[in-house]
Design a protein around this nucleic acid. Structure first.
Lengths: 193, 193
DNA sequence: TTTTTATTTGAACAACCATTCAAAAATGGT
DNA sequence: ACCATTTTTGAATGGTTGTTCAAATAAAAA
């Protein structure tokens, strides 16, 4: 055995996420990543392969801490209506007035790369499907307990909730007032009544 | 006076739009634009300035042919409910099954560039505000004629319609089934009842 | 036809891109 | 202390980037 790595892979990955999140994949240069991570170019390649692979790892790691991930974790157990409300409130907190103005890394990447990169597109499709299914599970359960309007088609409702969330995140990038984002979230939630 | 230009500026601009639309701003190279337009690099610079200026012109020209532009033109005169329904139907036609899978140039550009380029961000903000205001005008008019649910706040409703449209366009990029996009549009339109 | 002015052309530019690699440095096991 | 193994380092790679420019070309005006 021999020498250990001097840095924490995950800490580096999280710094890389920050760069990709702000600048997008194409606009991010290896030099940007060197500056942000403060490790040598060679170490980046040695540890993460190349820019595309690092981006993939960044995406996957980023995903673990999103409102959507919490939705996935809680879909089968949590209070359905409250969980959907919390989902929107987390999004509002993240992208609202004092939150991020760089949108969501996944949403940004879908817009930038889904048409060009078939492998990434497949990854994004799975992510969107998972989100839809988590919302579907919650809606269905909420309709059974009577907390959610039982007359709406649960699949359609799940899809439109997700679209509202994505639209909200996109619109948050032009920095509208907080009331705008609140209106969007509340209108989406009003579909539960 | 002397020589005329051999090419049609607008025809060239539309070819450039196609490239930016498919690849985004950063991933598009001048060489891509040379290949697509079949005019010389020098002519591109002579006619359009530089990449950033050409992109601006492309955005502005693209905007003139969007569903949103039609909304802006008709907001004060058209049948309010029908115009909003047509807005979503045009989006469905453009981004649905046999439509574009590259999303909307403006939506894509917001995701890619709004956080990085303050000038573009201001441009996008105006565009979003105009869209919201057109929808607001239509909702208000529809509420007066009784075609649209008068109990909903017209400003909130306009905002959520726009968010649904943006979400629909984003989700269309992962190529879901047509029913998914239809569900989103119908749920948004159900807010008018 | 000649002059004048604009467009077209292709080569050239420096800067920057992602990536590679051999040498140097460092550490755990013997 | 020494060896084996890995990480770290910094320079170098070849290709591509956006942009410029002087010369060649073409056409309207004289």
């Amino acid at each position: 055995m021999a020498r250990h790595k001097e840095f924490d892979k995950i800490a580096i990955l999280e710094k890389a996420i920050g760069v990709f999140w702000s600048k997008g994949f194409e606009a991010t240069t290896i030099q940007d990543l060197v500056n942000a991570t403060r490790i040598n170019r060679g170490s980046i390649y040695d540890t993460f392969g190349n820019k595309a692979r690092l981006f993939n790892l960044a995406l996957t790691h980023y995903q673990k801490a999103t409102p959507t991930q919490k939705l996935l974790n809680n879909a089968k157990t949590a209070n359905p209506r409250k969980e959907i409300e919390d989902y929107f409130h987390r999004i509002l907190y993240l992208h609202g007035e004092q939150g991020e103005k760089r949108g969501c890394l996944i949403t940004n990447s879908i817009a930038e790369l889904a048409y060009l990169d078939k492998k990434l597109a497949a990854h994004f499709k799975i992510h969107i499907n998972n989100s839809e299914n988590a919302l579907y599970t919650l809606v269905k359960r909420g309709q059974e307990t009577g907390d959610i309007n039982p007359w709406r088609n649960p699949r359609s409702l799940a899809r439109s909730l997700l679209a509202s969330a994505e639209g909200l995140i996109l619109i948050s990038k032009v920095d509208p007032g907080n009331e705008t984002l609140l209106d969007i979230a509340n209108a989406a939630l009003s579909l539960l009544d």
